[in-house]
Design a binder for these strands. Structure first.
Length: 572
RNA sequence: CGGGCUGUGGCGCAGCUUGGCUAGCGCGCGACGUUUGGGACGUCGAGGUCGUCGGUUCGAGUCCGACCAGCCCGACCA
């Protein structure tokens, strides 16, 4: 492409409120434009990158036997009602009506539709299958943000495995796991695979791929020593053993004005250090009140609570609801003797004695609480949030907490959707079995943004060759100079003939502008052709990463570029 | 949904407190000329329903109200 004929609207002034670097650089470089909150145009440059990312994903999906198709994004609401997700997905699901007043939704993921396609499978002999598409997904996000990192309309590669049994599912899952590692590495990411919560998708095992970045929204826990890594929504840690001594007598005592864990701990350090208190929280989960118990110095990880109950919706209780339920205000709450309410407790409380907790009467607490004796725990579940420095459950070394971008997520779904839609096949014995599904997603544009977050410097983007909009830019220093121009044109056609994706900067601009623009938009190789070099039969080769320059003899330039590009085209 | 902020040529902003007549600045854009190995300069020029609606006023970009949109901080996801 000739730059003079291309639409590459670079901007010198960045959007002032662009928080994420990728957002700023993609806008400045003329890759994307915002239309509305969470709605972006891919300009020619952006679309080229997107297509390259899709190409990598497609190659790796096909390599594991994936078959690409395209499903509708406009779905009858009825289908979503059938899988129960019409309600489950809440406000995030875009809903609309057609002219006949029929309820429709815009697809936010497509387990349902693929399960319906699976109705055409009848025998275990038809399995396994890996089906996928790359298509638009719609999500009415409460808060789109950070440019392409969190949007309402985006391209997702979503694939689904269909298997007759658990080993089949495991195999399909592992294939995806490996394919995902290759994809991310090929596009220039160092995404880490971590244990994750399955959330609203349903399913058992799940792994997220997280690219370390402060622009991200996910917190990841990793061990400094071993291979333990998990999303904070799932992460666990080892706690030092506690010796409370002998169980004692349950006793009420007055605590006027002491409404917080800290206040109580300060007033009664002997019996009520934060780690000797029971923190009692009241939530409303899917409409039902639930009491959540944690050690006083621990914080609740809400996703764990959702997962423990298999809940779709969660909120903290209102003060008046709490008063109706327990008869006291927050600050004096507890679960001792409470009946008829679901009580979840964190394992850090298991077996603890001589604990302190609220007595469900304002300004009164209990001491000498023996958890197993005094509290009727309905369900024990990992609920607390891991913090930095706690110890790894696998090896005992310290855990680190860091922030990243979720670029991919793979789930073992099970039979939820096949059962809902009746996707059964006959097994070897002629028995009808629900197809076991797995579901695997990658956000394409988010991937593009993550690449930029991970590959840039103060001058702009540094695209890996594998996803660069152009692999080489030829910067013509003096377009008006006949001989210079002729040399540039010659290199241009040679590179094109060699199959290189090349951009010829033939704009009538000063050199400084061209250098700056080529660095901003991040083309990995630049060949500078100017009268000075041409006079000596050399051109200047610049590698974007590091901006190191060297003069290359005219006759060798094309070969050097082709070699460089081809060595990095399939990943760095 | 709660909290904070913003809306003025394509982009980035000033003007608003203290209404006043032709609404400015930088970048970008067009023409001409001089320039051209790191974001040039001169001259001329094009381009704006001041987010929308309503109100106050002789007069509203400026004051008041409602609404809309966008951004940022908190609860969700590729």
């Amino acid at each position: 492409m000739r730059w003079s004929e291309a639409h590459i609207p670079t901007l010198r002034d960045a959007p002032a409120d662009a928080e994420a670097v990728s957002h700023k650089l993609l806008v400045q470089g003329g890759f994307i434009r915002q239309l509305a909150a969470g709605s972006y145009t891919m300009l020619p440059l952006g679309q080229k990158v997107r297509l390259k990312v899709e190409g990598i994903i497609r190659e790796e999906m096909n390599a594991i036997g994936g078959q690409e198709m395209v499903l509708p994004t406009l779905h009858p609401a009825e289908i979503w009602k059938k899988s129960d997700r019409y309600d489950l997905m809440g406000e995030n699901l875009f809903r609309l009506k057609d002219r006949k007043d029929v309820d429709l939704v815009l697809g936010m993921t497509e387990e349902e539709i693929f399960a319906i396609l699976a109705l055409e499978l009848f025998s275990y002999r038809d399995l396994p299958q890996i089906w996928y598409q790359m298509h638009t997904k719609f999500r009415d996000e409460p808060r789109p943000k950070s440019g392409l990192l969190r949007v309402r309309e985006f391209t997702m590669k979503d694939s689904y495995t269909l298997d007759i049994d658990k080993p089949g599912l495991d195999a399909g899952f592992d294939k995806h796991h490996e394919a995902y590692k290759r994809m991310f590495s090929r596009m220039g990411l160092e995404a880490v695979d971590v244990e994750a919560s399955s959330g609203a998708m349903g399913g058992s095992e799940s792994i997220e791929f997280i690219q370390r970045s402060d622009a991200g929204e996910d917190w990841v826990v990793t061990c400094e020593n071993c291979d333990y890594r998990a999303n904070i929504q799932k992460a666990v840690s080892a706690l030092p053993d506690v010796d409370d001594g002998e169980s004692g007598e349950l006793t009420r005592f007055a605590t006027p004005g002491l409404r917080t864990i800290n206040a109580l701990a300060e007033a009664h350090p002997d019996i009520a250090g934060a780690d000797r208190q029971i923190k009692s929280l009241v939530y409303v989960i899917d409409g039902e009140p639930v009491i959540v118990l944690l050690r006083g110095d621990h914080e609740l990880q809400e996703q764990k609570l959702m997962d423990a109950i298999g809940a779709a919706d969660l909120r903290t209780s209102l003060p008046e609801e709490i008063r109706d339920l327990l008869g006291a205000d927050p600050g004096s709450l507890g679960a001792v003797g409470v009946e008829g309410v679901r009580i979840l407790a964190d394992p850090a409380l298991e077996g603890r004695v001589r604990m302190t907790t609220g007595a469900n009467e304002d300004d009164w607490h209990y001491k000498g609480v023996d958890v197993s004796r005094d509290i009727d725990v309905t369900q024990w579940a990992e609920l607390r949030a891991v913090t930095t420095g706690e110890k790894c459950v696998k090896c005992g070394h310290s855990l680190e907490l860091w922030k990243g971008i979720e670029v991919g997520h793979i789930f073992k779904l099970g039979t939820k959707y096949s059962e809902a839609f009746g996707a059964f096949v006959q097994d070897e014995d002629g028995e009808s079995q629900p197809i076991i599904m797995g579901s695997y997603g990658i956000g394409v544009e988010r991937g593009v943004a993550a690449v930029v977050e991970a590959n840039h410097d103060e001058n702009g983007i540094i695209w890996p060759v594998s996803v660069a909009p152009y692999e080489v830019v030829i910067t013509v220093v003096r377009v008006d100079e006949e001989s210079t121009r002729a040399v540039a044109e010659d290199i241009y056609s040679q590179l094109r003939d060699a199959g290189i994706d090349v951009l010829l900067d033939d704009r009538i601009e000063r050199p400084g502008v061209k250098f700056a623009d080529s660095e901003l938009i991040g083309i990995p190789y630049r060949i500078t052709v100017g009268p000075r070099g041409v006079a000596e039969s050399v051109v200047e080769l610049t590698v974007r990463r590091g901006l190191e320059k060297e003069n290359v003899a005219l006759g060798e330039a094309v070969a050097a570029l082709v070699d460089g590009v081809e060595r990095h085209r399939f990943g760095i």
